[in-house]
């Protein structure tokens, strides 16, 4: 704790207190010595000074605790590191996925045991939210695939919950599972299995091969290649977007050190909330589009 840092802390604390007292003094003074417009401007100025000095104080405290800013040099692992669990070495994303599934199970149990028996005819509150979610998943699936199967609606519901859960985990500065190529590739594999399953169920095995060779048998290899490219492209899209968001947030946090006190929440509003939701929506829409195309 060098004298410079202690000096910074003390000065910022004193400035914060001074601004606060000045602001209160201005508010409660009898308003005949300063006219109201100037009073409001002074009020705003003192508020700004208060916020700035409080921010600087917290930044200095955090810098003291965890070392200063690191500069632009940031390290990250492309694939998440592995932990050792019961003698097996599983990757960290699997453990995070287990935690997400456990949390969602707990919430579902609470819902089933306490909220569901109190369902009324006219919904309000939590019942409204749950009904909207279930009905949105169902209607969306039915409208995109022309009423193929009710199981598909349930799968889309759980997939949406999973990706939203991954976005929520990222808020706690844990590496989200969707920024791991293996996890998104497994999601793409499930989509691939679903496409082929529904295609074969609807058209039969011969019909599926015939659809691959449909205008002209010459283009069959290209169609097979584009069919294989579907899950790969889905996986890469989700992985790339999530990894990019995570890198930007990491850069912000490590290169600014303690000075990034308020900015991470503002940037996290886009990179950790809005962007993953859009990517989840894209993933689901593309899955349904490809399934619809395979069962035309």
């Amino acid at each position: 704790m060098s004298t410079a840092s202690i000096l910074k802390l003390v000065i910022s604390a004193v400035a914060a207190v001074a601004f606060f007292i000045a602001k209160n003094y201005i508010k409660h003074k009898p308003d005949d010595s300063i006219e109201p417009k100037k009073k409001k401007k002074l009020n705003r100025l003192f508020f700004f000074g208060l916020v700035l000095s409080v921010w600087y104080f917290i930044a200095c405290v955090i810098n003291e605790i965890s070392g200063g800013p690191n500069g632009i040099h940031v390290e990250f692992d492309l694939f998440s590191n592995r932990v050792s669990l019961f003698g097996f070495s599983v990757s960290q994303t699997t453990v995070t996925t287990w935690c997400i599934v456990a949390v969602i199970t707990l919430l579902s149990l609470i819902f089933r045991l306490f909220v569901f028996p109190k369902f009324k005819d006219i919904p309000k509150g939590i019942q409204n939210v749950v009904e909207i979610m279930v009905e949105a998943a169902d209607n969306f699936t039915s409208s995109q695939t022309h009423n193929l199967s009710p199981v598909l609606g349930e799968y889309i519901f759980s997939l949406a919950l999973m990706i939203v859960g991954c976005a929520a985990v990222e808020l706690f500065s844990v590496r989200p599972p969707t920024s791991d190529l293996i996890f998104t590739f497994s999601l793409g594999l499930v989509t691939f299995i679903l496409i082929n399953y529904f295609g074969i169920k609807k058209k039969g095995f011969g019909g599926r091969i015939k659809a691959l060779a449909s205008p002209n048998p010459i283009i069959m290899p290209m169609k097979i290649l584009s069919d294989i490219a579907v899950p790969v492209s889905l996986a890469c899209r989700l992985f790339g977007n999530m990894l990019g968001g995570m890198i930007v947030m990491d850069l912000l946090k490590t290169s600014l050190g303690g000075y990034a006190v308020g900015m991470t929440s503002l940037a996290g509003l886009y990179f950790n909330l809005f962007h993953p939701l859009i990517q989840a929506y894209i993933f689901i829409v593309l899955t349904l589009t490809f399934i619809n195309e395979a069962t035309e």
Partner: peptide, 24 residues
């Protein structure tokens, strides 16, 4: 790893299907 992840997803699908989706 792939198998574990796919099993996780199927587990989540079954849990939400029987606890949330079907009753609602």
């Amino acid at each position: 790893d792939l198998l574990l992840n796919i099993l996780n997803i199927i587990l989540l699908f079954l849990i939400t299907r029987f606890l949330v989706y079907k009753p609602v």
